[in-house]
């Protein structure tokens, strides 16, 4: 095997992995913020925000991520907006992430027992005070594992953006495979790259969970 070629492959793949990581972080942070807004809309007392948020979530959970990316990427140019692959990828993944996180977090809020609402209500707390002091602290604890678990899905979801030409890990891999005629080696390394990004996340979620369980009693 050619030593120089291998180091060049690795250098290129690392650069691709950096873009995958950057895209994942962007989508996760922006999607998390949007997901929080969705969460509050979904559990609002007023039915209007509830329905809007539900429609949004159904659209983004009910269509493939790839279609969402196509619509943003090609739809933008249709109405005369120059949408770069980076913008389309970041926007598409953010919307996708927000829909899932909003729904995961709503599930966590709703899994807090009804008695917690009733006890805090009977102590004369307002809805916002109940959320802030009683419900969300408990929901947060429940939310950590599924949230970090979903972040692994976000990292893997970034691979789809290679199809609209965003040069992240997968796209870098397919270009290298074509150039070197060593698809097995290249995609093996690509898979290793994804594993290296995802494994620490799931390991971290386990540590966090243990820490929070432990901290409760002290």
């Amino acid at each position: 095997m050619n030593e120089i070629a291998l180091s060049a492959i690795i250098r290129n793949l690392l650069e691709g992995a950096a873009w995958t990581l950057g895209l994942s972080l962007t989508a996760f942070v922006l999607g998390g913020i949007a997901g929080l807004i969705l969460l509050f809309a979904r559990i609002a007392k007023n039915p209007l925000p509830r329905r809007l948020a539900q429609a949004y979530i159904e659209v983004f959970q009910g269509t493939p991520l790839l279609m969402q990316l196509f619509i943003i990427f090609f739809g933008g140019s249709l109405i005369g907006l120059e949408v770069s692959p980076w913008i389309a990828a970041a926007l598409g993944l953010t919307l996708f992430t927000s829909a899932y996180l909003g729904e995961i977090w709503r599930g966590c809020v709703e899994s807090v027992p009804k008695g917690q609402w009733e006890a805090s209500a009977s102590l004369a707390l307002t809805h916002v005070e109940q959320m802030r002091h009683v419900i969300l602290p408990q929901a947060l604890r429940i939310a950590i594992a599924p949230t970090v678990g979903f972040s692994v899905q976000v990292v893997k979801g970034t691979a789809v953006t290679s199809i609209i030409g965003f040069v992240e890990l997968t796209k870098t891999g397919s270009m290298l495979a074509n150039a070197t005629f060593q698809p097995f080696l290249v995609f093996g390394l690509v898979a290793l790259g994804y594993f290296a990004l995802c494994y620490p996340l799931s390991a971290y979620s386990r540590v966090l969970e243990r820490k929070i369980h432990g901290s409760r009693a002290h």
Binding site: P113, G115, Q116, E118, A119, S122, L123, V134, Q138, R141
Partner: peptide, 12 residues
């Protein structure tokens, strides 16, 4: 004030 069958203390 109200006290419930299931206590409903805030566990956190």
């Amino acid at each position: 004030g109200m006290v419930f069958q299931q206590f409903n203390l805030f566990p956190h």
